[in-house]
Each structure stands twice: as C-alpha cells, then as structure tokens.
Simulated scan of single mutants.
Amino acid sequence: MAHDIDVTIVRAFLAVVDSGSVTRAAELLNLSQGAISQQIKRLEEIAGHPLFVRAGRRLVLAPEGRSLVAPATQMITANDNLWAALREPPFEGEVRFGAPYDIIGSYTPPILRRFSKAFPSIRVTLVCQDTVVLMSELKAGNLDLALTTEMTCSKGGETLRMDRLVWVGARGGEAHRRMPLPVSFGAEACIFRPIAIAALRKARREWIAVCEVSNMEPVRATLEADLAVAPLLSHSLPDSLEILSDRSLPKLPEFRINLYQAPHAKPAVQAFADHARRCISASLAG
C-alpha cells in the first residue's frame, strides 16, 4: 500500500528548521502561524513522536527530527525538479543576476551550475556589488533579479534563509586579541559595516580599519594573514577561517538572505529564481 506525504508539510518542516520558529517560518512561506503549526503537527503524527524541542525562544530539532532533514530536502528538490520539467519551456536569452560579495562564493556557484545545466542556451550575466547598490540597479532595470543580505525584507522580496553575522579570523589567529582591534570592512555601502561599528562602540571596544573594500579577496587575504578580523555570515566562510568565540567581541545580529525579482519578470528569470530557491533550500541540510 502506498503511503504519500503532502509536500507542503515537508516545506513547513524545513522552514521551521531554518528559521527556528513558527512565526518566521510562516513569513518565509507566506502562510499563517496556525497553518504552519498544523502542518508540523501532521508530520509529527505521521512520525509518532515530536520533531522539535524548545530551547529558549527557538525551536530546535529533536534527534528524530535531525534524521529527517536530508530526506526532506531531497523530497522538496525532487518535487521542484519534476514541476520544472513539466512547466519550464526551452528558454533562450539572458538573465542579469546580482549578488553581494559576502555570499557570492558560498551560494552563487551551485545556483549558476544548476541553472546552466538545465538551460544551457541562456546566458547569465553576474554582477557583484553591495546589497544597497544591487537594490538600486534592480530598481533602475539594470538587473533581472538579485540576492541580498539584509536585516529585514523589503516589499517585493522573499527571505530564503536566515544567517547570523559573526566575527571571523584566521584559524588559531591572534588578531582578535590585539588592541585596538584590527578590522577588515567592506566599503561605505557595505550593509555589515555600520552594524559592526555600532556593536563595537556599544561594547566600548577600540578598533582600527585594516581593509575597507567591497571585495572578498583582499578582505580574505587580511584575515588569512592574521592581520584583522571581520564580520561575515556564518554559513559563508572558507575553510581557512573560523568563527571567533572571544567573549570580548560584541554579539552581532541575524541577517536575511533575500531574493528580489524585477517586476513582470520574463519566464527565464522566474526559472532562475526557482533554481535559487531550490539550491538555498538544499543548503539548509548542510
């Protein structure tokens, strides 16, 4: 006898896994909190045991829930691939896609690889700029869609993932112990810069700028050389760097990875957006 699981309850499960709360999961999926709670309850009834436990204000996975993340992600990916195969026409043309430097190395390659394989006749033009610049370019019609890193999500956008801003340095490095604290920032338009500076000032931690450019290569070079620390998203770190646990460094807030599309997006752009959603959803199991 076949046993089928509604894909919507699996999406709700992964949304709560990513966001840590029913409220945020409801925002991600554009549903009510009651709908999300009911979907999680249905999945737990199928499983026969709770999938989440509460840790303070957050919901975290129970051991039984952790074992479901990988197959749940595979199910969503397979469902979306089937939907795409049924619905997506053989597009041609160009997609102009923007991403900020702080996540371009972690999230962009799998999106581009997957889309290129599915639509080899479509040329993708990649633009790397700070989030503020990308939003301006999108509004001006110079981009078709963009990923951004923001503390909130503006009208017309959708949040694909939550991630915490953390202090990062060389593995086994000493830069975080120096006074004043040497910091590598992005340029003036960098969204992380004012947040990190405000946190340092509130903590009364003296600092000095070592690098001020919105380009990950020089920032990474100063970090790997143990010349500075930097505020970066926790899921976008190369293996050569580590999250610093120094309690003298002020805590930084969570950010959203948002997706925006130009109004009246052509089918190729909508297809690219779907691939971005699937790739970032698949990364939640990592």
Rank of each mutant, 00 (worst) to 15 (best):
G20M: 06
G98Y: 09
A196F: 15
A12V: 10
G172A: 08
A271K: 01
R54E: 12
E92N: 09
I46F: 07
V53T: 12
A196N: 12
I280R: 13
I103W: 01
A62K: 09
S283L: 03
A72H: 00
Y260C: 00
G286K: 14
I195T: 14
A12R: 14
K202P: 02
G20D: 13
W83C: 05
V127W: 07
V168G: 03
P250A: 12
M162I: 08
E137N: 14
A47H: 09
V183E: 06
S236R: 06
C279S: 12
V10A: 01
D239M: 11
A228L: 15
R164K: 06
R220I: 06
C128Q: 13
S136W: 07
E94Q: 14
F119C: 00
Y101H: 09
I191R: 07
W167N: 06
K139A: 02
P263S: 04
L43S: 03
T149E: 08
V210M: 15
R11N: 12
S245F: 10
T131F: 09
P182H: 15
G172V: 03
E92G: 00
L14D: 02
A118M: 05
P71I: 10
D4E: 08
E188F: 10
R66H: 10
I197F: 00
L181I: 08
R205L: 15
L86R: 14
L143R: 11
F97E: 10
T159C: 05
P100Y: 08
I40E: 02
G156E: 06
G156K: 07
A2T: 12
L43D: 05
S240H: 00
E150D: 11
M1K: 06
Q74S: 14
L252N: 08
S283C: 00
T73A: 14
V210F: 11
D80H: 13
R178T: 03
Q129C: 08
E137D: 09
A268G: 04
L31V: 05
G157P: 03
T148Q: 12
M75T: 14
L112S: 12
A118S: 07
E45C: 05
I103M: 04
V219N: 03
P109D: 14
W167I: 13
K117A: 10
T108H: 04
P253K: 15
E88H: 14
K139C: 02
F185C: 07
C128I: 13
A78I: 10
P231R: 09
S37H: 12
L252H: 11
P50E: 03
I257F: 08
P263R: 01
A12M: 04
I103G: 01
P100F: 12
